[in-house]
Nucleic acid binder design. Structure first.
Lengths: 344, 344
DNA sequence: CTCGCCGATGTGAACGTACACATCGCCACC
DNA sequence: GGTGGCGATGTGTACGTTCACATCGGCGAG
């Protein structure tokens, strides 16, 4: 028994097979295996098959870390997100994940809990430490832009759902337009006193919806009143409703999102008011449940998945050095259901 | 001017600084820098400071790929998820992300679109190719277990929201218990004819809730009837409601989740039935909006964030070689609101 | 005063892959 | 029939880090 190589063979750790193991089994050099892995054109069909068989036999998987090290390409797209439990962001992220994976990229997602600069910076910092190749921001908060320029991100990035503050890097559903559609719908129904419950002030999309609302009102020469600044939650809509409805100096409400609209309708019910009999309400987003609210909610539908897909396509294009692609905003769509009616 | 090193210095690519660059600036060896990065105890305070200054000056970031390569630790936890747009999974994932990041781990999330075996396998395959160190499954579908054993995952894993089919690896809110609580609540209100609208058959948690429902009914010697198999959506609840309410041979409904409950209430409204006057309804999950449905929904609250956190703690412990930790199920909580009342 | 130990630091390897370049055989062309 | 070229494959090296081991000075114990 020739145990002279015991040291080198026997006590070998159960190490994952590498490219050289595959090469040995296939009877070729490791470089040939590398070529197979990278779809090199000049490989004899027979050799190709042998290598493939060896790969299957050993259950070989390329080591991503080694690959990333030598190519200095992480194949990772970073996602800075806020409020991922909400329908919109969650839908976008899902689309992003799917598109990225299809293109051979992985995702590194991080949530920022607050809108504080420090929180954003730390999230961004974390992503940079993953050496991401591109960045998608779904935390459409104003301060994110500061942080991005402060940290010298140095990779292509886009922000989703934001408006054209930094239009080179923004990709968005036209929030202003959506808000105008919602407001116009109410105006066309005869409403003249319209309330707006907005999202948080530091959310760019909240700001955009507010702008759209105000502009449409201005165009119709209607009185504008200060919007209420909410926090996107149904509870806020509810308490705001209880408060506002004590005066009832309006007949319609445009809510910054569907959840707040739901809360507001709850308040109406509790105050004995009919929707849309006494008060008309429009939401924003068209979450899947909106069609089953009481009453089914008139709202503005956004295609969250579409902007997610576009974001990935845009960034991948940029990484390939392609000239810029279309940044056209995605058009939202007004979905008229039963929460809006003629002015009483 | 000594341009003799021009070749080596001048045309240098704008390469990211590495550990040797830091060492040079700090006037130490690269190994000392490595020690600083890994919090080695035996470093003179003065040296430590010099290295830290050099790191800041150069804006140095450790290369994760190189680190992963040499340590063969990816510091990545894989997450196989389904339906991430839903409140429950999304909440859990957020908690997981936060806990993982805190522990220095990153996440690799992948969504499976369908419950087909191939889809699960491909998702798992993708995760394995990222050389994940541990796996969390939030796609509580029966076939996932097959796939996990088929693919010989070889890393610690837990499944969330599933019930004890494979209890060594499961971590869950006690769905059976939650379902029993919901059902008992209805029984205590005098209902004897109770309908159950379940989630999809291949979802383990749907199965568990159904079991809880049936057992509680059995314990009370009440007639059991075949549950309706739904798909978790509000729309399904709505159409199922329209269908079932034509007969009205029941006075209470236990829905598999809040969305289906919402849809069902919509159907009741449309049929001119009062909730809870004519029909009582209980949901499951307690999504944030449930408190504002019409009427506010009685439901079973699950702590999604808690199980997410526990999953990470469990896996991290296992990676450190600690002996097993508690797998005790998280207890759900019945939240009584206004969608349930005494039998008419 | 010397020996041994320890704290602080440095040197050589290795991880698994892709890229640049070298090699080899073969065919077509003049 | 020599030569250039090309298709197919092999050899060296670098990527940035950590681990194992080597070195070196100082200090306490005998």
């Amino acid at each position: 028994m020739t145990t002279e190589t015991a040291r080198g063979a026997e006590p070998e750790r159960v190490r994952a097979p590498n490219i050289r193991d595959v090469a040995r089994v296939a009877g070729v050099s490791y470089q040939t295996v590398s070529r197979v892995l990278n779809d090199s054109p000049s490989i004899r069909p027979e050799t190709l098959q042998r290598v493939r068989d060896a790969i299957d036999e050993l259950g070989y998987r390329p080591n991503q870390a080694a690959r990333a090290l030598v190519t200095s390409r992480s194949r990772t797209i970073g996602v800075l997100a806020a409020q991922t439990v909400h329908y919109g962001p969650a839908t976008s992220i899902q689309a992003i994940e799917s598109a990225a994976r299809e293109a051979g990229y992985r995702l590194s997602i991080t949530n920022i809990s607050s809108s504080e600069y420090a929180s954003i910076k730390s999230g961004l910092d974390y992503l940079m430490s993953q050496s991401i190749e591109a960045l998608i921001v779904i935390a459409p908060q104003v301060r994110v832009f500061e942080a991005i320029s402060d940290l010298q991100i140095g990779v292509p990035f886009v922000t989703l759902e934001a408006t054209g503050l930094s239009s080179d890097h923004s990709l968005w559903v036209d929030q202003v337009q959506g808000a105008r559609m919602a407001t116009r719908h109410l105006i066309e129904l005869g409403h003249t006193e319209i309330m707006h419950i907005s999202g948080p002030q530091d959310w760019i999309e909240a700001e955009a919806r507010m702008q759209g609302f105000l502009r449409e009102l201005g165009d119709a020469d209607l009185r504008t009143r200060a919007p209420i600044l909410g926090d996107w939650t149904a509870s806020f809509g509810y308490y705001a409703g209880l408060e506002l409805l004590r005066y009832r100096d309006f007949t319609a409400v445009f809510a910054g999102n569907d959840q707040m609209a739901l809360g507001f309708m709850h308040a109406c019910r509790e105050m004995g008011l009919s929707v849309p009999g006494d008060i008309s309400i429009v939401g924003f987003d068209d979450v899947p449940e909106a069609a089953h609210y009481a009453p089914p909610l008139t709202t503005v539908r956004q295609n969250f998945a579409e902007i997610g897909r576009r974001a990935v396509a845009l960034l991948l294009g940029e990484l390939r050095g392609e000239t810029e692609m279309s940044h056209d905003p995605v058009q939202p769509e007004l979905v008229i259901r039963q929460s809006t009616g003629r002015r009483p």
